[in-house]
Design a protein around this nucleic acid. Structure first.
Length: 287
DNA sequence: AACCTCTTCAACCGCTGCGGC
DNA sequence: CGCCGCAGCGGTTGAAGAGGT
């Protein structure tokens, strides 16, 4: 009485050997939060970074645990819709091919689009200092005490970014996570973290040794007010800047590091080589 | 013990992309 | 080029269990 589809689902989500169910570790939680903030509700993509977890499991865990946890900080009015539902119709939520290789290529494309969008946004701004209007969003990241996912990931996740900020970007990058709003928020976050938080800025290459970097990078404190939008995307960029920024750069402003990263390939010289991409760095996650 | 509410998670549903014909 | 079947994705549902009254 079962169709092939149902059987496949049963196998992939439940019966398949090697899958781990329940008992998400703190590390896994943080990684999921980060990836959700970065990728939106692309559970399959997120699951590819957690080989022992199924996308369904991650999705369920997000919806039942993490989303609530992150909203526990005060919520930003997402209400029931919450982070995930708010991002249920993402422009950036393009269908992700099944294979990890394809997904990686897609992500790399997204990264390139992010660069372009960020570049354009920075160009359009008078300067690259954190934008005041980021505070408007800060109610999501700060005042609203919304989690990184709800802030950067949901309300402004790749998923949800399509509606508002996207229009400010080029059509090609319109749907991407890095709308100007997000960018502003990210920059704001970097700027704010700049001082006493030397280890976590994008300009601090040594800070993120590895995926465990994610533990550091994911200084996400749940349930409290400390959760802010920037960390997640920031950490994402950390990975990418890591290989290209020297330790001496630690004293630079983080923004400078971003710029150097951003414009390094402005002439089409993309950092697809080893250590040259977010993806490559991201893949450093140790499991 | 009965009832109700809430939470969890496996399964279902609709959709999209891809490959074969 | 269009059709068809399949794989896979993300959103949603509903049964089962837990907990409270």
């Amino acid at each position: 009485m079962r169709c092939s589809k149902s059987c496949r689902l049963r196998w992939t989500n439940y019966l398949r050997p090697g899958i781990k169910r329940g008992n998400f570790t703190d590390q896994e939680e943080k990684l999921i939060v980060h990836l959700q903030a970065l990728l939106g509700n692309r559970w399959a993509a997120i699951a590819s970074y957690l080989p022992e977890r199924t996308d369904n499991d991650i999705k369920n865990y997000w919806n039942t645990h993490l989303k609530r946890k992150l909203q526990g900080g005060g919520g930003d009015g997402d209400g029931g819709g919450g982070a995930a539902s708010a991002s249920s119709k993402p422009a950036a939520q393009r269908p992700v091919s099944s294979s990890k290789g394809q997904w990686e290529r897609r992500l790399q494309t997204d990264i390139d689009m992010a660069r372009r969008a960020l570049r354009e946004a920075l160009t359009s701004l008078d300067d690259v200092k954190p934008q005041p209007d980021a505070d408007a969003d800060a109610d999501a990241g700060g005042g609203g005490a919304t989690g990184p996912a709800a802030g950067a990931g949901a309300a402004h996740s790749p998923a949800a970014s399509s509606s508002s900020g996207a229009s400010q970007c080029s059509p090609s990058a319109a749907g991407y996570v890095l709308t100007t709003e997000n960018i502003s928020r990210m920059l704001d976050g970097w700027a704010r973290k700049g001082g006493g938080h030397a280890g976590s800025g994008p300009a601090t290459p040594g800070a993120t040794e590895s995926a465990s970097g994610s533990s550091e990078a994911s200084e996400v404190s749940y349930g409290g007010t400390a959760v802010s939008a920037p960390p997640a995307p920031a950490s994402a960029f950390e990975y990418e800047t890591k290989p290209t920024v020297t330790a001496a750069a630690a004293d630079e402003t983080q923004l400078s590091a971003i710029e150097s990263w951003l414009f390094a390939d402005v002439d089409g010289i993309e950092h697809h080589g080893p250590g040259g991409s977010l993806l490559d760095a991201s893949m450093d996650y140790a499991f």
